[in-house]
């Protein structure tokens, strides 16, 4: 089940993580927003999209965890808590996906992993939001319950859309011979 990562796998994941980090900058204007999960809502489409492309190229268990680690590394210098958010989100999403599908051979396994990664960062960002904004758990449970529910639905929808777009781009590039899975090398 587990396959060794080659240098070219790691380099591809790292370069794509740099792209993803730049798209993560879209969340900067809403970073201080007290609306729970808004930061994830803004970026989840692109994270799921590039996450899907990453797994489509590197079809190996552990890809999403490594990808989360690489994305989290630059964030470590800016917002250390976000590092854990991305890394742990990737790890849990990967464990759940591999428990269901065993491997990344099918497109739906890839889409599930990358969209689940973003969806999982929402509950994972709860402690971060409590520390950062000074809100309490009660705040999310009562006052802003409808807001939280709406954002969660938005994150789920956008993550799935991002993952499907990622699959579409990957399929196009594969057809053009530009994105060969690393196992075929």
């Amino acid at each position: 089940m587990f396959k060794k990562f080659k240098v070219r796998d790691i380099v591809f994941l790292a370069v794509l993580a740099a792209v993803n980090t730049l798209f993560g900058g879209l969340a900067m204007p809403v970073m201080r927003s007290e609306i729970f999960g808004l930061q994830t809502l803004v970026t989840c489409l692109f994270y799921a999209l590039f996450g899907t492309i990453a797994i489509m190229k590197v079809h190996k268990p552990g890809t999403l965890t490594l990808y989360g680690l690489f994305i989290g590394f630059p964030l470590l210098f800016m917002a250390p808590v976000m590092f854990f958010n991305n890394f742990i989100g990737g790890l849990i999403a990967e464990v759940i996906t591999l428990a269901i599908f065993r491997k990344y051979d099918e497109g739906k396994a890839v889409a599930t992993a990358s969209s689940l990664w973003m969806i999982l960062t929402v509950p994972l960002s709860l402690p971060f939001s409590i520390w950062f904004n000074g809100s309490s758990f009660e705040h999310f449970r009562t006052t802003a319950a409808w807001q939280t529910a709406l954002i969660c639905v938005g994150v789920i929808v956008l993550s799935v859309v991002g993952a499907v777009l990622g699959l579409k781009i990957a399929a196009e590039l594969r057809k053009a011979g530009k994105l060969r899975p690393s196992e075929d090398d």
Partner: peptide
């Protein structure tokens, strides 16, 4: 491989 990836990112 992990340190290489971090540095490239």
């Amino acid at each position: 491989l992990i340190t290489l990836g971090m540095l490239i990112t």
